[in-house]
């Protein structure tokens, strides 16, 4: 069984539509931990020791957050700055996170189509997430494709719930199956992982 840590950052969850539903669909299972940063550290005063211990105790790390200005809400940046210490997470002696898997669970106002070189955003989501990817690599972790809820402003509740169910399935799959990195990398988005792994089995 893989242990999954969801590091969640949303400053106004009261107003959120997508993330409220995503959180709702996270299975209540052993080995799945939700770490709600804005709730735990309302003063941005992050407990680094606690956060590092949480990281050590899990195999798969998820950064779940809305995409604000092509990045994460301020709290997640604060978390990276403080928790991923030199000599612990990276650098000559920083091997604490080696081999763990990490990926983003994001929501964006723009649609799938607009994140194309030729599209409205002039770049792909992979390119947008480059800072996270580089962070993961520096920390000797495997960076996986994101789980992505796109075009959120146009989504109606039933569609959002569909995403929620998919998120639930993904988490269960990651928890149970010891998927190889190559299998995981096949998907451009982890949204599609369920179909891919079903095809692989078939």
């Amino acid at each position: 069984m893989r242990k999954i840590l969801i590091i969640f950052a949303h400053p106004v969850l009261e107003k959120s539509r997508v993330h409220k539903r995503l959180l709702h669909h996270i299975p209540h299972l052993d080995g799945i931990t939700v770490n709600d940063l804005y709730e735990n550290y309302p003063d941005f005063d992050i407990d680094v020791t606690r956060e590092q211990q949480l990281l050590l105790a899990h195999d798969i790390i998820i950064w779940q957050h809305p995409l604000y200005w092509y990045s994460a809400p301020a709290m997640l940046k604060q978390w990276q700055d403080l928790v991923l210490e030199h000599g612990w997470a990276y650098g000559k002696d920083g091997y604490a996170l080696r081999g763990k898997k990490v990926f983003n669970v994001i929501s964006s106002g723009s649609s799938l189509q607009s994140y194309q070189r030729e599209g409205y955003q002039h770049c792909t989501i992979t390119e947008v997430l480059k800072p996270f990817e580089r962070t993961a690599e520096l920390c000797r972790m495997t960076y996986l494709p994101p789980f992505w809820v796109s075009g959120t402003h146009k989504l109606e509740m039933p569609q959002i719930n569909e995403y929620g169910k998919r998120y639930n399935q993904l988490l269960q799959l990651l928890r149970q199956e010891n998927l190889k990195d190559e299998e995981l990398m096949q998907a451009s988005c982890l949204n599609d992982l369920i179909e891919i792994s079903q095809n692989n089995l078939a």
């Binding site: 400053p11 106004v12 009261e14 107003k15 959120s16 604000y68 106002g109 402003h153 146009k154």
Partner: peptide
């Protein structure tokens, strides 16, 4: 909870879209 948090998930943007 409404106007004050313009910059986070603004309602006006959703309306515009």
């Amino acid at each position: 909870l409404s106007e004050g948090d313009m910059s986070w998930d603004p309602d006006s943007l959703i309306e515009e879209v």
